[in-house]
Simulated assay, not measured.
Amino acid sequence: MSPATDAATLATRRSSRFVAWVRAWRAGLVPYDEVAGEVAGDEEHLVADAPGTWTDVPLGNALAALSKLSPDEIRLVLPAPGDPRGLPGPGPFTGAALTAGEGVIARDLGLVPEVRTHTSGSGVTFETVLWRVYPLPAAPTAAGAGEPSAAEAEAELAAALAEATATLTRLDIAQWRPELAGALAALRRPDGATDLPPGFDPRSRRLFARASVLDRVLALAGQAAPGGAVNGYEAQQRDAALRPLTTACRRALVAACNAPLAG
């Protein structure tokens, strides 16, 4: 796999991991002490505006604000312009989630991750992830409203992937995006970064693993082709082919992360 492809398959949406692991914790399936580490991985995660705090705090400290929630009150949202499904209506959280393309609803709180880049005095650049907490309306969107089941999302994703693959083959996408061939192969061998915590059934695990890798492949496909190898018309054709697949992929991630947990 090329370096560009490998990079595209490293980052999972932070909100999806947050929801999956926090829901498993609230179901009593993983210990509190493990949650922050599983969500953050090798990144530094801080939380701003968490209830009861006056400054940014480590993620582990802020999770206490969610300790009285049930798993089904914690939901993943992956909105996009023109597709605000899952959002509670106009407000600061909705705007931030649309900008980021992701967010977490936790009863009357919304959380959105922001990646911040810092430069040390010696010139070293590094990143931190800041989860900003927003108060939500008294009656946010009902849990699961408008979401497909894992079975429905899996069928939608398979159909969209087959259609997009056929279209991109006709467009000869490999000619100007050759690293996509290697990235698509990763769909058949998801790694540990695409695994869900205990409590999720096999279908949800399979769906999350496939959609997570595909989500990262789509991020790569959406980048400008190296050396200007694609013209405006070809880019429009590519985008039209990938748009339904991108939507199906987002719906699959939401369905997998918000699926009912086994006790």
Rank of each mutant, 00 (worst) to 15 (best):
M1D: 01
A7M: 12
A11V: 05
T12M: 13
R13Y: 13
A24D: 03
R26F: 02
A27P: 10
L29A: 02
L29I: 01
Y32N: 03
A36Q: 05
E38R: 15
V39P: 00
E44H: 11
D49V: 01
G52N: 03
G52D: 02
T55I: 09
V57P: 08
L59C: 08
N61F: 02
A64P: 00
S67G: 13
L69C: 03
P71W: 06
P71H: 11
L78V: 00
G82I: 07
R85P: 00
P88M: 06
G95D: 15
D108G: 09
D108F: 10
G110T: 03
R116F: 03
T117H: 09
S120L: 11
S120R: 10
W131E: 07
W131H: 12
V133N: 08
L136M: 08
G144V: 03
G144M: 11
G146S: 11
A151R: 14
E154L: 02
E156L: 12
L157D: 02
A159M: 09
A160N: 06
A162S: 13
T165C: 05
L168W: 03
L168I: 07
L171Y: 11
L171W: 11
L171K: 09
I173G: 01
W176K: 08
R177M: 14
E179F: 10
G182T: 04
A183C: 10
R188I: 00
P190F: 05
D191Y: 02
A193D: 15
D195T: 15
P197W: 10
D201H: 09
R205K: 14
R206E: 15
L207R: 10
R210V: 10
S212E: 14
A224K: 14
A225E: 13
G228Q: 08
A229I: 07
A235E: 14
Q237F: 07
A241N: 03
T246W: 14
A255S: 08
A256H: 07
C257W: 03
P260D: 01
P260A: 01
A262C: 00
G263D: 14
